[in-house]
Design a protein around this nucleic acid. Structure first.
Length: 476
RNA sequence: GCGGGUAUCGUCUAACGGUUAAGACAUCGGUUUGUGGUACCGAGAAUUUGGGUUCGAUUCCCAGUACUCGCCCCA
């Protein structure tokens, strides 16, 4: 924490001060003290760590994230989804209306605050609501249907952090507006499947269910409440409360006794109205046709109240039989209407990017590694140092990715860095070369080097790189 | 929000209640100043915070914090 770092600074500065005071005179002591004090104050203020549940995505993790981003972007194009970005902050009411009162997300887990202007706003707990808002606001209903939107970004939930569960996490959303045909449902599941499998994640399972439309769900819910009322004594404390607020979620309870009660409870898929039953049936037919790994889970409910008909989740299983939820979604045929738009059937799903990355690591998935520089530029002496910035820019302009360590003085230490980076060529500019307008081109593999004029530099570099590529291809 | 576990350099690990808190890896510098590797030398770098017990706490006790596991919930 902050005080740890204070100590560190205190200690190191104190030590340095000792050295200085003994070596020279105590002239600089007051400045050092002042610097120390300022540093301590700053570190106290910022605590040297982000708030609870927030974390950094460090460079070491980025190859996984890059791979994921690339796959998402590619799949979005393939399936005709267009990118959209909406703000992380929206009016709180948007989420209260869409996700629904009585859900934990809204009641317990939403970051809400009042702005200086007095607006009640919230950090988005999911992406769909904002997309719906944008859809209405920008009149996307006039676009040809379905309107397919793809979005990624941070979402926020005030949870207790755990592994794979953060207060800020990243979701990717695919949503299709304006089409009620169940083939869209199937296509979206296919898309989700494509995303995870092209990342190398295996042992995927989809769970699907239908929770009906408002009409048949109401009848079902009444039936369910009646059933649970009769068995109320056997339910856990939480579920007794749920009976009042959100009875569907009792089906989802993990308590043994509730599971027992729930297994014999009436199932929503048995109580669907004709329209919903037909919809669900044809979805299943499509899924069978696609040969996707799915099971029907009659107890799958989902925590957001805007869902209708189809709901589904993506799970992956590990060797120990543990299952990890990667994402989920469903149909929300009435959300746009509830937000004040015209009747627009829609379906969408979100995946947790953090959890996907977690899975990628677990299965040692392929990562996307940025191209590495194959050339290093070393300089020696003041004049060469000045020249080197231009040479560097020249190389970049010609598409030659170049590394450097301009801050280092000795040629030896620069070559050491070059060696560690595994570059194939090191360019050396010393005092003499700077005056002659030449550069030493050193082949790091053979160790040979030649001095070339500036004009011939790019050609010389390209020649060596080209030869190396041929060699390495033959080697493979 | 509730319960359990854990906490030492950047990382991984050591230290009968008494050490100058040790080592490895990594980082930086050097081995006569314009050439990589190895080797060798050197430097910086930690007891999560606050209390208590004790002559003395990294070590024992209590609390806070963070991480972690299970619940709740979810992605």
């Amino acid at each position: 924490m902050a005080k740890v770092k204070d100590k560190i600074i205190k200690k190191s500065v104190a030590k340095k001060m000792d050295k200085k005071t003994t070596a020279k005179k105590a002239v600089k002591a007051p400045t050092a003290k002042k610097v120390l004090k300022e540093k301590m104050q700053v570190q106290e203020e910022i605590l040297m760590q982000p708030p609870r549940g927030m974390r950094d995505l460090l460079p070491g993790d980025q190859p996984y994230w890059n791979q994921l981003r690339r796959v998402l972007a590619r799949v979005a194009i393939d399936y005709g989804f267009q990118r959209i970005d909406t703000p992380a902050v929206e009016y709180a009411n948007l989420f209260v209306r869409s996700i629904g009162k009585g859900t934990d997300i809204v009641d317990k887990e939403m970051y809400m605050f009042t702005t200086k202007g007095g607006d009640k706003v919230a950090l988005r707990p999911e992406l769909t609501a904002g997309l719906g808002r944008a859809y209405i606001q920008h009149g996307m209903n006039v676009l040809s249907k379905p309107v397919k939107l793809f979005s990624t970004g941070p979402v926020y939930r005030y949870d207790r952090p755990q592994e794979g569960r953060y207060r800020e996490h990243f979701q990717a959303n695919f949503d299709a507006f304006g089409e009620q045909d169940p083939i869209l449902d199937a296509q979206l599941i296919q898309l989700a499947h494509r995303v995870v499998t092209s990342l190398g994640i295996k042992n995927i399972q989809f769970q699907v269910n239908s929770i009906g439309c408002p009409k048949c769900r109401k009848e079902y819910q009444e039936l369910l409440v009646a059933y649970f009322e009769s068995k109320k004594q056997k339910l856990c404390l939480n579920c007794k409360k749920r009976l009042e607020i959100n009875p569907l979620r009792i089906l989802d309870c993990k308590e043994d006794k509730c599971i027992q009660v729930a297994t014999t409870a009436p199932q929503s898929i048995d109580r669907l109205c004709t329209e919903c039953r037909v919809h669900f049936k044809s979805l299943l037919e499509y899924l069978d046709e696609l040969d996707l790994p799915y099971v029907i889970n009659p107890r799958l409910v989902r925590g957001l109240s805007y869902y209708t008909k189809t709901v589904f989740e993506i799970w992956s299983g590990d060797e120990e039989g543990k299952k990890h939820s990667l994402g989920g979604g469903g149909r929300y045929d009435h959300l746009i209407e509830e937000l004040g738009g015209e009747h627009t059937p829609a379906i969408g799903f979100g995946i947790g990017m953090d959890r996907i990355v977690q899975e990628m690591k677990r299965v040692h998935a392929k990562m996307y590694i940025e191209p590495k520089p194959r050339v290093f530029l070393a300089q020696l002496g003041d004049l060469a140092k000045k020249k080197s910035l231009n040479v560097f820019a020249e190389l970049q302009k010609n598409g030659i990715l170049t590394a450097e360590s301009f801050g280092r003085g000795s040629l030896k230490s620069q070559l050491r860095v070059a060696d560690r980076l595994g570059v194939e060529i090191t360019l050396i500019i010393g005092q003499k070369e700077a005056l002659d307008e030449t550069v030493i081109v050193k082949d790091m593999v053979s160790g040979t080097q030649e001095t070339v004029n500036h004009e011939r530099l790019i050609i010389a570099v390209r020649k060596i790189l080209k030869n190396n590529v041929v060699v390495s291809h033959e080697g493979e």
